[in-house]
Design a protein around this nucleic acid. Structure first.
Lengths: 213, 213
DNA sequence: AAGTGTGAATACGTTCACAGCA
DNA sequence: TGCTGTGAACGTATTCACACTT
């Protein structure tokens, strides 16, 4: 379920603040969903709540982490060390929960050899070797659009089946491979759309349906 | 519709390659969706296709751009000029289609005054003034989690109603405000979940349902 | 009394399949 | 003939509402 990470984050916050037990109502509002949905989601993992009481925070953190596969640690390679790749390498959120940046790779000889976030940037020629040697199972593509598909193919050929793509292209992959895409300009375009509708509503008439999140 | 930006990108690519007309089938596969869905999406904008022929690429680009509000230009302020903020400021995709980075703001005196992507980083104290003076209507929050809610409140008080949030927190906002959230570690967690299921499938038994994208 | 777990009802998005138009 | 536009069928996700447990 795509919402488990959200619940997990809310629960971690509560655990830090020493909260031992939480109701579906409270956890749901902390995660920004409604309580029936939350209960249904959690019920898929098993019956981890106690009627009349709520959920044990620590226990639920463990169960969700296990479900998400965060009890093991995943080696991540970042391909493309431009501004975005650098930001990702420095992003604390990766290291904190089960992810380890195991390699930074780039094609630019200016960048290869630099130290970023304690890691040495390696040449893209090493891609296949690095993936195998370090057991990389998730690759983050932060390359220009033009290079993304080719690198994607190489990464898949090297055995990776999970890719997080920041390049603004639709990657074509076999359906054994999971791709998630983050497209910054698409996010902005959706906001602009909503912004425009608000402006329209002030004056002339609107025309079509919206979606949220 | 959240998929219009996807179609738009595919269409722009086709326009560049000099393709004048496209069928729902072809456009759908370029955008990575199925053709019935594409036709239904486009039909909400009006009847811009020609039966037996397809869609005129240029015309459809214009119609979608208009629908998304990209025929006007939007002033965007980036709040938080750490690694991610810097990456966003340098990201070409913003400038290209209707978005203009109008301000970079940060609290750190080390960073204030720096020139990044041709813009001077201003102090966060200037936030409200800058928003008003430059007609900023979309704000990108790229701050640490701890600072996000407070800055979000200030931004809303200054009249902004569209926020793109990169900080790993659920922002609480009035429902007149649109927030889109990009959470890098959540994307990775979802990939890890799928990765684990693949591993499980090899050996023991799986347990629950999955979702895609 | 409080709050989970879950069938039943509802809403939503997707896909099918084809009538109708160029 | 080819392809759009769209009702109808379908499947899935969300929400309701309450029986049941602690």
């Amino acid at each position: 379920m795509a919402r488990l990470p959200l619940y997990l984050r809310a629960l971690n916050g509560m655990a830090e603040r020493g909260i031992a037990t939480v109701s579906s109502e409270d956890l749901a509002s902390a995660a920004g969903v409604n309580s029936a949905k939350l209960r249904k989601d959690l019920s898929h993992l098993g019956s981890y709540g106690t009627r009349g009481v709520g959920y044990d925070v620590e226990y639920l953190v463990y169960q969700i982490s296990r479900e998400l596969g965060l009890t093991q640690d995943w080696a991540v390679a970042i391909v493309g060390v431009g501004n975005l790749g650098r930001a990702l390498a420095n992003y604390g959120g990766f290291v904190s929960r089960g992810f380890r940046v195991a390699a930074l790779l780039d094609a630019d000889p200016e960048i290869v050899g630099d130290d970023i976030a304690g890691l040495n940037v390696e040449h893209i020629d090493e891609l296949e070797a690095v993936i195998k040697r370090r057991g990389v199972s998730i690759v983050v593509l932060a390359t220009p659009a033009a290079a993304a598909q080719e690198l994607c193919d190489r990464v898949i050929a090297a055995g990776v089946t999970s890719i997080l793509n920041f390049a603004p292209v639709v990657l074509s992959v076999p359906d054994t491979v999971d791709v998630r895409k983050v497209d910054l300009s698409i996010e902005l375009q959706i906001l602009a759309f909503h912004e425009q509708r608000k402006a329209d509503r002030m004056s002339g008439g609107p025309l079509m349906a919206v979606d949220s999140q």
